[in-house]
Design a protein around this nucleic acid. Structure first.
Length: 346
DNA sequence: GCCC
DNA sequence: CAGTACG
DNA sequence: GGGCCGATACTG
């Protein structure tokens, strides 16, 4: 019989596997890393106990699970551990996985810090930054060092994902300020908040305008903003009083549909849409569909309806955009009817 | 790594 | 440019 | 066997 091990624990093991591989050689294992992360997410969303599925020999029915990963799941169910995972732990300090959670630190820098300074934890990274040691490393300077210190502080401030209702209040405050600005033609909440998720990691906002610069300025100077993480022509990122990160993108109104689609996600849903576009000889990004025949011809979408229509799909509501079968359902014209408040009566 |  | 980050 | 999202955007 199988061990007591939850879907969640198995998912965590695959995420750890992905992170350790990322540290070892991000490029060399690029697609394996993606595969492991996909499976981790699929397992967390799986409504059934993996052990039951395994007992029936149906593991490969899970999206993203093939022969190799099915074997790894079985190994976890039987032994509670993975040989591959243990080997990687011996090669790469596990504490580096936490270091990866620091904004601005990816696998390259984490390994650089480890190999040059022996850093294996966030605490050690913080100490090294305070002592001015990071700036001595190639590609690092005083500014990068300071950013890392601030990221570590931010990491401590927000321990968990925010409840959607709390985040919604914070989002609407910023949104109202943006809507009140001259030359803002539209302003919308995007991201997981728009998808109706119960908890959200950050707030994503989108505005339609022909003059993004003054809007970006107003955004980063909003009274709720405590820190500017990045500010560019069309994309800025800030930290709010609540500790929440808030990202804003600005696009011209004729491109609002592709932008809202992109910024609403989910990532997995976006990737599926982009694959569908490629099948039709089009490349899709947040700005437009672009013909892949070299002509550079663009198809602009002011609304999301146009985006889906271009892909021969009926409109898919944000709440369903998780790549959990909604694309296939849409293609079969069999999307479920969502329950709206207005449909409910006492 | 998975999938066509 | 490389590195990191975003859905 | 060979592709796998983005002609992404921002920083230093």
């Amino acid at each position: 019989m199988f061990r007591m091990i939850s879907n969640r624990q198995i998912a965590d093991a695959f995420d750890l596997l992905a992170d350790l591989l990322r540290l070892k050689d991000a490029e060399g294992y690029r697609f394996e890393i993606i595969a492991y992360q996909r499976v981790a997410e699929a397992l967390r969303e799986l409504p059934r106990d993996v052990r039951a599925l395994a007992a029936e020999g149906r593991l490969q029915e899970i999206d993203g699970v093939g022969k190799a990963i099915a074997a790894k799941i079985l190994e976890l169910l039987e032994h509670g551990t993975l040989r591959l995972l243990e080997e990687l732990k011996a090669e790469v300090p596990q504490g580096l996985v936490d270091v990866l959670r620091v904004n601005g630190v990816g696998p390259k820098r984490a390994m650089l810090f480890y190999q040059q300074l022996g850093i294996t934890s966030v605490a050690e990274l913080e100490a090294a930054a305070r002592e001015g040691k990071l700036r001595t490393l190639p590609g690092m300077g005083a500014k990068s060092e300071q950013k890392i210190l601030e990221s570590i502080a931010a990491l401590a401030r927000r321990t968990t994902r925010a409840r959607a209702d709390i985040a919604l209040q914070a989002a609407e405050r910023i949104l109202r300020a943006l809507q009140a600005l001259p030359n803002v033609l539209r302003a919308e909440i995007a991201g997981s908040l728009r998808r109706g998720r119960a908890t959200i990691g950050d707030i994503d906002l989108l505005v339609a305008t022909h003059t993004p610069a003054p809007i970006m300025d107003a955004f980063v100077n909003h009274p709720d903003v405590v820190r500017v993480l990045a500010q560019g022509e069309t994309k800025s990122s800030v930290e709010l009083l609540s500790g929440l990160q808030c990202d804003l993108r600005a696009v011209p109104p004729e491109r609002f549909g592709t932008a809202l689609s992109y910024f609403t996600g989910s990532q997995a849903h976006n990737i599926r849409l982009r694959e569908l576009a490629l099948q039709r000889g089009l490349s899709l990004n947040e700005w437009a569909f672009t013909a892949t025949d070299g002509s550079g011809r663009e198809i602009l979408c002011a609304s999301e309806e146009e985006v889906y229509a271009q892909l021969d799909l009926p409109y898919i509501p944000p709440e369903l955009r998780e790549d959990r079968g909604e694309i296939e359902a849409a293609q079969a014209n069999a999307l479920p009817n969502l329950i709206e408040i207005s449909h409910i009566r006492a």
